[in-house]
Design a protein around this nucleic acid. Structure first.
Lengths: 251, 251
DNA sequence: CCCAGTAGTGTACATCTTACACTAATTACC
DNA sequence: GGTAATTAGTGTAAGATGTACACTACTGGG
């Protein structure tokens, strides 16, 4: 076994990309690093995995330790292992991501993190290590996820309006033209996933909107069956020539 | 930096899941391990990552060294890091997968691998380490991939018949009832991805089928645009009650 | 020449997608 | 109290796509 010893000299970490939705913006939770390397820079909440803990366990623990978030469902996205991504040596990191309702959680940064704060996705330009690349990869995963699962469940407060839900989809999918209001509502309502609460907004300076909540049971039924939750832009881009005849999905 | 030394004691490997299609069967390339642990067992071709090489590079190198396959496009799938998955210590493995035309490559097992052989997916029951779990994860990825990309490209010989292509799809998607021949052809042909070679099979004891090849340029155009290549079974299963009204895809 | 075996083809109906514009309810302000 | 501002809410028609379904066309072998 001696011949293998040279291989047992690397370290690995987990990095968590936590998405939230608030005030019409899609946000990501970042910490300000309190130790080197990259002390003082914004980074994803991530840290070393203990030798005796599984990856998923480590991701949860690290998230809790750095931000105080607990009981968050984390999903593995991809592993980043460029040779020089960490100045201390060979460090591979496994990226996890999650969606949460910002209002459900309170953030308590630890000593390693000077602060933890939600940042609007669009404004995040530079992060420590290769964390911007990791964030981008997770954002792409989210875009994919939103088409195959009713993500609103995880991101919106218990009661919400259809317009809020639509804004969420627009924030994630970033369609140039936004989504068509009537088509969006038709589609969402036809899925029978929403419960009409027969209540309306209060304190808004315009016609108040009806409030809805997700039907958790239906949601789980649908998840079990697996389904397709595609959303398309309200205004079609010009189709490239060859598309006019070509079809893009299979019977 | 001393405080971190305890973390730099793990190792990581890559494991490759290479799918091929041959004689109507979907196959996976396995090696018979020539060294401990699990000497003599079938396993995925995988090995340690060098300290100074990137993950993708390592996956390619390891595949080459163990099986003689080169110039294979490998895609990262997921990382497996259960604490006790390797008897020598903490070893995390990054799983890669690929699709190749079996006939395009010759296999040359190295000393580490006693042999390398294609195995029909359905018959693979037990593998070294947690490799069965890794294989299953990659197979799921393949099922997903087949719906979003014309994978026939990667798996079939340059000239093929529509029936062969259909069998490939059926092998991957494993629909209970097979796919409807007319609908399959209609769909495939309407994508303008195939070039009709105006040739037919020879030496078959029945009406010979036309031969086609993939149109590489069109394929790349389509890839760049991103498209949806869904296939459905020819016979619908009974719909669960709530589906009768609910729709499963979004406008 | 006929049998066995696979290749190849079209249509009608149902469902889903898309584009599109006006009325309704509320508050703020004058 | 009227009106302006602002967002909520609603339906329909045309086109594209998906699905079910059964027969004829070639070829080699006997």
């Amino acid at each position: 076994m001696n011949e293998f010893n040279e291989y047992f000299k690397s370290a690995f970490t987990v990095d968590n990309v936590i998405f939230g939705f608030d005030e019409g913006d899609l946000k990501v939770l970042l910490i300000k690093r309190g130790e080197d390397p990259h002390k003082g820079k914004w980074a994803l909440p991530g840290y070393f995995v203990y030798p005796n803990e599984d990856l998923d366990t480590a991701a949860k623990r690290v998230l809790d330790e750095l931000t105080g978030l607990r009981n968050v469902y984390l999903e593995q996205v991809r592993t980043f292992g460029a040779v020089n991504r960490h100045p201390f040596g060979r460090v591979i990191t496994v990226a996890y991501f999650s969606l949460i309702k910002i209002s459900d959680y309170t953030i308590q940064p630890s000593s390693i993190a000077q602060k933890a704060k939600w940042h609007a996705i669009a404004k995040v330009k530079e992060l420590a290590f290769d964390h911007k690349e990791i964030l981008d990869a997770c954002f792409n995963r989210l875009k994919w996820l939103v088409r195959s699962r009713p993500v609103g469940f995880e991101l919106l407060p218990p009661k919400f309006t259809l317009t809020e839900l639509q804004h969420l989809y627009e924030a994630i999918l970033e369609p140039e033209a936004g989504l068509d209001k009537r088509n969006f509502r038709k589609k969402i309502l036809s899925m029978n996933l929403l419960i009409d609460l027969d209540e309306t907004q209060e304190g808004v300076a315009h016609r108040p909107a009806r409030l809805y909540q997700f039907d958790k049971d239906k949601y789980e039924e649908f998840l079990a069956e697996g389904f397709n939750f595609e959303l398309k832009e309200s205004k079609k881009k010009e189709k490239p020539e060859h598309r006019k005849k070509a079809r893009h999905s299979f019977p």
